Amino acid sequence: MKTWRKIRLGDACKTNMYSYSPKENWNFVNYLDTGNITDNKIDSIQYIDIVNEKLPSRARRKVKKDSIIYSTVRPNQHHFGIIKSQPENFLVSTGFAVIDTDSKVLDADFLYYLLTQSTVVESLHAIAEQSTSAYPSIKPSDIENLEIEIPDIATQKKIADVLFSLDKKIAQNMEINKNLVA
């Protein structure tokens, strides 16, 4: 079995790399706020016609495939997810830390599962409770400063694939249960 190694998360990923600028002249935006995603399940995406409506000041962060979005406010509320597909002109709230991995070192799915483990969420929430803001919050640097142990990239992908398969089966079973109740 290959050995795992300890890394500082910020050495294998970047946070908040891309932002929207009004100079881009989009006519509309599909916007995801922090409260509209929980445990990687999106409740709704807000369509904003920015020709006729004002864009919320927090609608600034751009994401791409495999970007991890992690709410910086009250991590214990599980407002996080990983982007696998997105609508056109998609922005997320500045209330998210957008995490993009160096794919040669760290698999995005593996990192998503690691960051959403209850021990990591609790650890980040403990940091948030020590913040000086009016509500518990973390900074992107708090995520970047996490030290994690990782295996080689092939093993990371295998682990993430197994966890994804389990999540998919759980979702299927929940749908079956909903139909049985109906």
Rank of each mutant, 00 (worst) to 15 (best):
E147K: 15
H125I: 04
H125F: 10
V105G: 00
A160T: 03
T72G: 10
K65D: 12
L166T: 06
V181L: 14
D43N: 15
A108N: 03
V63Y: 07
E122S: 08
I143E: 03
G81K: 05
S141P: 08
V181R: 14
D100E: 15
T119G: 00
V92E: 02
V92A: 02
K158G: 03
K2N: 15
I176F: 11
T132C: 02
V63S: 04
S67I: 08
R74F: 07
S103L: 09
G35Q: 11
G81R: 05
S57E: 08
D109Q: 10
L9S: 00
T94V: 05
S19A: 14
N52I: 09
P140Q: 13
A154D: 15
S131L: 11
K104D: 15
Q156F: 11
N145M: 12
P75E: 08
K54V: 14
K23W: 04
I69G: 02
E129K: 13
S19P: 05
D39C: 14
K14C: 07
N173D: 01
V181Y: 11
E147A: 11
K84V: 06
V181P: 03
I37H: 01
C13N: 01
A12W: 03
L55I: 13
H125T: 08
Q156D: 05
N179W: 08
D142E: 13
N25A: 08
I148Q: 01
V120A: 00
I68W: 03
L106Y: 04
T72F: 01
S165W: 06
A12P: 02
P22E: 13
S103R: 13
I99T: 02
V51F: 07
A171R: 07
P56V: 08
A59E: 06
S21A: 10
F80S: 01
S131R: 12
A108Q: 03
N145D: 15
I82R: 01
W26Q: 05
F96P: 00
I150W: 08
P56K: 08
Y113F: 15
R60V: 12
Q130Y: 10
A134H: 07
E129R: 11
S118T: 05
Q172D: 10
I7H: 04
D100K: 05
